[in-house]
Design a binder for these strands. Structure first.
Lengths: 231, 231
DNA sequence: TTCATACTTCGATGATAAACGAAATATTGT
DNA sequence: ACAATATTTCGTTTATCATCGAAGTATGAA
C-alpha cells in the first residue's frame, strides 16, 4: 500500500544547487562516475560524495560500483519525469543564446561518458556491433567475437586485453534514456581513442560533447554499415 | 555551464516542509486564504506570510486579494503536475493517527490533481475509457476517438480544444498512489469540471479528496458501464 | 471613532547543512 | 611492492534560513 508521500524530503534534495546540477547531468540517462558529477556540480569530491550518498539513500539514484569508480544513474523514469516537470515551472531561463542552445543539443546527441562513447551514437554503435555479431552480451560484460576482433584490429583499435590489467575489458554501461547498454570498459576506451585519432569524432570546445565529422559519417558507414540520422 | 540553476531554486522552495504542506493543500485546485494555509502548515501567520511571498515571487502561486483576506492558488496546471510528479518519487510519510489514515484512504480513493480526477477512481475511469475505445494511448498523450467525443459531448463535457491554448489536450498523468496513468490535460479538466456540475462527485471538506455521490454511482454506471467497488 | 480581524514587516535567535581540509580505504597501473 | 587514482569518512567552519515575538498596515464591524 502506498502511503501519503511527503514530497518535501525529495524536493529539498533536488533543491540544493550542487545536487540539482548532478541530477541534470544524469537526466540524459547516462551513468556517470562520482568524479564527473563532482566536476559537473563544481564541488570537491568529498562534497559530491556526501550529496550522492543522500541521493542514493532517498532512492533517486542507483549506484553501480565498477572498480575504483562508482557509476551513478537515475533510479527510474519517474525521477527523470519529475525533474522534467520541475524544469517546466522553473521559469526563465538558462539558455540565453542560440549558441548555448546548439551546444545543449550537441550534448544530448553525443557525449563521452567518462572515457567511452555514450549518447545516441554510443548506443547505436553498440547495437550495430551486436547486429554484426562483433560483440555478444554476457552478464555485465560484452564478449568480443573473432570477427569483431579482426575488424577492430584492422581499424587500428587496441583489442588485446592486457593480461596484467584488472580493468574490465568490455563492460556494459547502461543508458537510461535509451534503455540500452553501450560499450564501456577498456575496449570502449580504446575504440573511442581510435575514433578520435581517425578524426571520425571530435570534441566540441566545451570538452565533453562530441561531434561526428564528415569523415566519421563516411567511415562508420563504410566500415560498419552504420548510418546516423541527425534530427 | 550550469544548465538550469532555477530548477534548484524552485525545488528548494517546494523542499521546505511548511511550504510543501501549503502547496499540497492547494493541490485540490481551490483558492485558500493565508490564514488557512498557515494552519495547514502548522506555522504562525508571519511565517506563512513569508513563505507565501516567496512562492508568489517564484511564480508558483497567484494571489487574489479579497477585502482583508488574501486568497492563494496554484499558478498553473504545470505546477500541479510538477507536485504530483514529485509525489511519485517521494518516500511514504509515516502515519501518526487514525485521522491521517482515513484521510490517506480518501485521497487514494479519489482526489483532484489540481483540476482533474486522480486516485483509484481517476485511474479506473481512464481504464474504462480505454476499454470503451473513447480514448487511446499515443506517446505521452491520449487521443479522443469519434465515439468518445460524441459520448462526452452528449454528457455536456467541453471537448473542443481551444486553438490558442497551448495546454496539452489529453495528457497522461502518472498517479502517485496507483502508479498508473490517468487522464489529465484540458480534457481531463473539462471532464472533471462537468462531473462536479452534475454532482456526480463532490469535494470532501478537506478540499482535495473527492466523494462519488449516489447520482454519480448511477450516472457512471449507466453512461459508461463503470462500477466502483468500495473497499 | 473604536475595536477586531487578516495579513505583513522587522529583528533576534537557533538549527541545519553545505563546504572543504585532512586522512582513511579501495582499486589500478607500473 | 609502490605510486597514482577514485571515493569515502571525520571534524570544523560558515552561512543560510525558518521561526516567532513585537510592532505596523489595512480592512471590516460596532
Amino acid at each position: 500500500m502506498n502511503s501519503n508521500p511527503n514530497l518535501a524530503v525529495v524536493a529539498s534534495l533536488i533543491g540544493n544547487p550542487s545536487r540539482a546540477a548532478m541530477l541534470i547531468s544524469l537526466l540524459g540517462g547516462k551513468s556517470l562516475p562520482a568524479g564527473d558529477l563532482a566536476r559537473a556540480a563544481k564541488v570537491s569530491p568529498q562534497t559530491a560524495s556526501m550529496h550522492l550518498a543522500k541521493l542514493i539513500h532517498a532512492g533517486l539514484l542507483i549506484q553501480e560500483p565498477y572498480g575504483r569508480h562508482k557509476y551513478f544513474r537515475l533510479a527510474s523514469s519517474e525521477v527523470g519525469h519529475a525533474l522534467e516537470a520541475l524544469q517546466t515551472i522553473s521559469p526563465p531561463k538558462s539558455i540565453c543564446s542560440l549558441r548555448e542552445s546548439n551546444q545543449l543539443h550537441a550534448l544530448q546527441f553525443a557525449r563521452t561518458c567518462y572515457d567511452h562513447l555514450a549518447g545516441k551514437i554510443g548506443v547505436a554503435l553498440t547495437d550495430r556491433f551486436l547486429e554484426l555479431k562483433f560483440i555478444e552480451k554476457s552478464g555485465k560484460e560484452f564478449i568480443l567475437s573473432a570477427e569483431g576482433k579482426e575488424k577492430l584490429l584492422k581499424l587500428g583499435v587496441e583489442v588485446e586485453k592486457r593480461p596484467k590489467s584488472r580493468r574490465c575489458f568490455a563492460r556494459q554501461c547502461l543508458d537510461w534514456s535509451e534503455r540500452r547498454h553501450h560499450l564501456a570498459g577498456s575496449l570502449g576506451a580504446s575504440l573511442t581513442k581510435r575514433l578520435f585519432e581517425l578524426r571520425w569524432i571530435e570534441h566540441l570546445p566545451d570538452g565533453r560533447a562530441v561531434h561526428v565529422t564528415d569523415a566519421g559519417l563516411k567511415g562508420l558507414s563504410d566500415e560498419f554499415g552504420f548510418s546516423i540520422t541527425i534530427e
